[in-house]
């Protein structure tokens, strides 16, 4: 276990140093988040007093958007960083030398995406922090329970990320999961508007897409806790759905990943991109 954490630390230290060599990028990203939050604040003012009472999470649209964006940013990291980690090492040409150390491929993937999670935690928090600091957005409920939803949804999305990494390992480029989840989550998971509207305007068939996406449940759970102040008992439904996703996806994604690694080693294409 010490070895595992030492390796995680090695990747974190490496990526921190690489990040330091590109300082400007960091400041520009902080600035862009501030600009997005400010823009959303002004847009939210259009809707003041017009919120539909059916959509209790959307009484303050700014709070709903900020939690949506913060959580989406984190979820997308959980999903995409694993495949990106492999792809980046392949493109840089460093994957072979990393794999020559006594470290398993799954550890390489987990460890090399660790920095992405650190960054995502920081930048996601910035959405909430700027909302609280500059625009008087208040959150209530248990942060611990919200964190549990965040972690659980991220793990579920990481399973899809493992499938995506398997895809990158075999096909190198072109990732169907990325297209499905990346565009799908923003549209169907309720990041910018209540998912009930999909049912109302596009019918139950289209609304079922929303129900098939894990971020929908994660986001719903987090908003219920942070915006509506609901307790563990109130959020059992999205919690159970996320657990079902986890039970199905975790073993399946690990099995697919093992097969992808074996195929790449047989074809000698592990380091190709």
């Amino acid at each position: 276990m010490i070895l595992f954490f030492r390796r995680i630390w090695a990747f974190l230290a490496r990526d921190w140093r690489l990040e330091l060599s590109y300082r400007m990028q960091f400041f520009l990203r902080v600035l862009s988040i501030l600009i997005v939050v400010t823009t959303l604040f002004f847009i939210s003012k259009i809707f003041t007093g017009f919120a539909d009472p059916r959509f209790s999470q959307w009484r303050d649209p700014l709070a709903a958007w900020l939690t949506g964006l913060a959580v989406l940013n984190y979820f997308m990291t959980g999903f995409s960083s694993l495949a990106n980690a492999i792809r980046q090492e392949q493109v840089q040409g460093t994957l072979e030398s990393v794999l020559m150390t006594p470290i398993s491929v799954p550890t390489v993937i987990v460890a090399s995406s660790a920095w992405d999670f650190v960054q995502a935690t920081f930048f996601s928090s910035l959405y909430l922090f700027f909302g609280w600091l500059f625009f008087d957005v208040h959150y209530r409920g248990s942060f611990l329970l919200a964190l549990m939803f965040l972690v659980l949804t991220t793990v579920v999305l990481s399973c899809l990320g493992i499938l995506s990494a398997s895809f990158a390992m075999v096909f190198k480029r072109g990732d169907p999961f990325g297209i499905f989840l990346g565009t799908g989550s923003a549209l169907f998971s309720g990041v910018f508007f209540p998912t009930q509207l999909i049912n109302q305007y596009a019918g139950s068939g289209v609304a079922s897409i929303s129900r098939a996406l894990p971020p929908t449940y994660g986001l719903d759970g987090i908003r219920r806790v942070l915006i509506e102040g609901q307790s563990l008992r109130d959020v059992q439904q999205p919690l159970i759905m996320l657990l079902i996703f986890l039970i199905v996806l975790l073993p399946f994604s690990l099995w697919v990943f093992g097969r992808a690694v074996r195929k790449a080693k047989r074809e000698g294409s592990l380091i190709q991109y």
Binding site: R7, W9, T94, V98
Partner: peptide, 25 residues
């Protein structure tokens, strides 16, 4: 190997070796 790209070009020589040493435990 003979592959130059197997290192991190923006890190120093010591930082590069430190990374790989940690992977070795």
């Amino acid at each position: 190997g003979a592959e130059e790209r197997s290192f991190y070009w923006r890190l120093t020589t010591e930082q590069n070796l430190l990374f790989f040493a940690r992977l070795h435990g």
